[in-house]
Design a protein around this nucleic acid. Structure first.
Lengths: 336, 336
DNA sequence: AACATCATGGCAACTGCTTGCCGCTCGGAT
DNA sequence: ATCCGAGCGGCAAGCAGTTGCCATGATGTT
């Protein structure tokens, strides 16, 4: 009934338990013939190592936790999917944690899991930078879509992406834009605004920031209303969900998109190409974000705290997806 | 540096390690004053139990695995979210596994995790029933959106939901429908077809089944083309993704929806209300599916194999969401 | 007063695997 | 012939808890 242990295998193979152990966890430490014998006997007995016993002494759990700030946001799912795929490829288990946009929950869950996992993937973490630095001291950490000095991370290129986005709007004749920003704690929101502002200045556009808004569809109404008061003809929403909510509100208020105002989002979620009008958005291959993040984490866990080596920061390309929600600025229609 | 153990706590509190252990894992086994002392000393020392050491002897891991057949499908997000929420509420950890529509991967991953988790949530499992029954013999199992005799599970009510859906179509004057079915291994697909067929017969409609189709947007084209050959005026796609693909193909072929044909889906994913035309679909609160599934699993893990008690099957209500993709059958327009 | 019962704390064996250290063997260098 | 080191297997002490069993004293019973 109860599953076999290394003792059973050792006895059956006529070797010591340490040999069995090594045959599995440190194969090159054992001669080929012995290893094969052990492996074969183990297979016959249906032995497989107990992960908890293994973790107890070795402190390696083959498990990584992914903490997302809000599991409700479909854009995370691509990241999660990429992470799961990559983790599975390395025989690692992926634990999923939803921080529900709460720094407190985020912190609690990290503490709770700190013994059970090899490291954390923090996606769009809402924790203050100090906390993160402190955590990084005792845990392997990889940030996703947030840059923290000294902590490895992967992000989608915002600077360049935002520049393209703003340039696109400028080329359509827009001269003023409004950025509908996300949560106060969101590093992404700050980073996007900085990039947008700079790009706007460069393109000779005026840029204002409104918000913060909770980046959900339902909060698009408030965002749209606020944006309209600015007179801006180009609205850049913090993400696609908010943008879709904005589109809905504009439609309800009979503001035509893109004839009266242009609207853009971020993330290129699945729904972005289905909504009406379809949404111009700054996307990128989020699957790769997840994948790369796991990769970084596995490296970090292997070579823990190599002191000299700076924390790796990967910047993956974003890409501007042009759809129907952006068009010539008002008054720029027809033959120039 | 290294975190304190029960030994440290025991020494500091002047009690035996067993007392410390019990104070945490079996509080009523220890008198209130002693327990409080231990808890307080533990707090001062920053002690928290090592989950692996705990799991090693007790065989309880406070972890549950959720295996989904295809993480790509947004409809699972909601289920996952519900499960995560409920698991967290009981201080359990949720492990996420993507079976990538492959029974082999599904089986492998279950085996791999069998020692590390208290039980499995199998969402839309593609495993043959025999395998499931066998697994249920050695693991706590809860099926999500699949019914297997003898194994507890939660499903959204298909029979009643499909009846409503078909009745809705009949009331619009449709007399023939086509069901664009999902994967061969999908229990859901079979179950839906059975319910649709019966309801159609009851309503005096003819019903044909086409497929199987992979339930993704990209496969909607083939599904639409196949459906059109049948002459049916009402198309019921296996899920919303497929339905959206069908809508796109129909638009490309200039078939008007709902004027020429009506289209419906299942799941009521976020995109269903955004696509054009918006999609009539059979939804339900998937969050609750996830939540209920975890609940059942926790129960099952608590009272393992109570022999007399039949496996619990929960049937949650589905709900028909009427949108713009269904309308009067061709020739039924205008005043009757 | 004698005895059964119960709540409580401690002892120690046990969970299944890892790993530092030791010692043997054997090939090659001296 | 001697020495050295590499390669390999074994010993045994952990890792951090859990839990069956026992001893003790307090409480209850008749």
């Amino acid at each position: 009934m109860t599953s076999p242990t290394i003792y059973d295998v050792a006895r059956a193979a006529g070797v010591a338990t340490s040999t069995v152990s090594r045959a599995f966890s440190n194969p090159q430490r054992v001669s080929a013939p012995t290893r094969e014998l052990v492996v074969q006997v183990a297979a016959e007995l249906g032995y497989s190592p107990n992960p908890h016993a293994r973790a107890l002494t070795s402190r390696r759990t083959q498990t990584i936790a992914m903490v997302v700030s809000d599991i409700t946001n479909p854009h995370f799912f691509e990241i999660i999917r990429g992470a799961e795929l990559r983790a599975k490829a390395s025989a690692h288990t992926l634990v999923l944690v939803n921080a529900e946009e709460s720094p407190r929950i985020e912190r609690e869950q990290i503490n709770r899991l700190s013994r059970s996992v090899d490291g954390f993937l923090l996606a769009a973490s809402r924790l203050p930078e100090d906390d993160l630095v402190e955590l990084a001291g005792s845990h392997a950490l990889v940030m996703v879509n947030r840059q923290v000095p000294g902590i490895p991370g992967v992000v989608l290129d915002q600077r360049e992406g935002c520049r393209q986005l703003v340039t696109h709007l400028a080329s359509l004749g827009h001269t003023s834009l409004a950025y509908l920003t996300g949560p106060r704690e969101s590093w992404m929101a700050a980073s996007r605004w900085a990039a947008i502002r700079d790009a706007a200045a460069e393109a000779g556009m005026t840029a204002v920031r409104m918000g913060p808004f909770t980046p959900r569809v339902t909060h698009g109404a408030a965002a749209a209303d606020a944006a309209l008061t600015t007179g801006a003809t180009a609205l850049i929403a913090h993400n696609d969900l908010l943008a879709i909510g904005v589109l809905q509100r504009l439609a309800a208020r009979s503001v035509r998109v893109p004839d009266d105002v242009s609207v853009t989002g971020f993330d290129d979620i699945f729904a972005a190409e289905l909504c009406t009008p379809s949404l111009t958005t700054l996307g990128g291959t989020h699957v790769n974000l997840g994948r790369a993040a796991v990769e970084l984490l596995l490296e970090a866990a292997d070579a823990p705290r190599r002191p000299g080596a700076a924390a790796q920061h990967l910047v993956l390309p974003s890409q501007l997806v042009l759809r129907d929600s952006t068009g010539l600025a008002r008054g720029r229609r027809g033959p120039a």
